[in-house]
Amino acid sequence: MTATTLTTGAAPRQIRGGVVGMLRDSWVVAKRNLRRMTRIPEIVVFGLMQPVMFVLLFTYVMGGAIAVPGGDSNAYKQYLMAGIFAQTVTFAVAGASAGIAEDMTKGLVDRFRSLPMARSSVLVGRTIADLVQTAFTVLVLAIVAFIVGWRFNNGFLKALGAFALLLLLGYAFSWIGALIGLSVRSPEAATSAGLIWLFPLTFVSNAFVPVSSMPGWLQAVAYWNPFSATVQACRELFGNPTGAPTNSWPMEHAVWVSIGWSLLIMAVFSYLSVRKYRSATA
C-alpha cells in the first residue's frame, strides 16, 4: 500500500428507482458480460460451431434422405434452416444458466446483491448480453445457410420479422436458463441442466422433419410445442416450404402463437428468476 491517503470518495447515494434506474444498472451488467465474451472468445466460437455443423450435416448427410411433402430435392434444405435457427437461439439457455451459476459460486452474486442496484438488473444484464451473442450467432449462421443455398423469398422486411421472432424466442428461453443457473450448485451442472431438455423439445417439433410423419398423439404435442410455432412462423415469413398443410390451430396462426408463447415464457420465468435471485444463497 502506498503512503498517500485515500480520499474519502463520493458520498454513498440512493438507488435510482423505476425503470430508468433498472435499465441503467442492467446495461452496466450487460457491458460486463459482453466484455467477458470478448475475453473468452472460445465460448462464442464453440457456440457457433454446433449450429454450423448441424447445417452442414443435415444439408449434405441427411438432406437427401428426408423428403418434404410437395417439395423437390432442394426443398429440405429450404425447410431445414428455420429449424436450425430456432434451435440455435434456444441454446442461449446454456449460456445464461452457466454464467449465472458461475457468478453464484464465485461470490459475485453476493457482491451484486449487497450493492444499491436494481434487483432484477443482474439477470436482465445477463440475458441482454446473451441476446447480443445469439444475434451474432444467428447472423453468422444465416451467412453459412446462404452459402449452402438457403434463400428467403418474401422480401427483406418479412425476413427481418422472422429473425425478430427468433431473437424473442431466444430471449424468452434465456430466462429459463437464468432460473436454472440460480437453482443448481455448479456451472457444470448448469450447462447440462440447461441443455438436456432442449433436445426432446427441439426434436419433437417441426424443426427437422415434417410432423405429419409422427404418430398421432405426438403430432398434437409437436404442433403445440412453442418451438414449432416459431419455426412455422419463420418458414412462412421466409417463404420456405412448410411441409404438408395442417388444420392444427397453432400452425395456422403461427406468428401470433410464437409471439404469445415467447411473451408467456418470458413473463413466467423472469418472475420466478427474480424471485429466486432475491433469496439466492451461494
Partner: peptide, 27 residues
C-alpha cells in the same frame, strides 16, 4: 462488503472491475 472469497470478475481488468462496482453504486 468484502466477503470470504475475493468476489471479483476474473475476466475483467482491475480497472473494469472497480469501475463496474462504482457505476452500480450509482456513480
Amino acid at each position: 462488503l468484502s466477503g470470504q472469497y475475493a468476489a471479483v470478475d476474473e475476466y475483467l481488468t482491475g480497472q473494469e472491475n472497480l469501475q463496474m462496482v462504482g457505476e452500480l453504486y450509482q456513480m
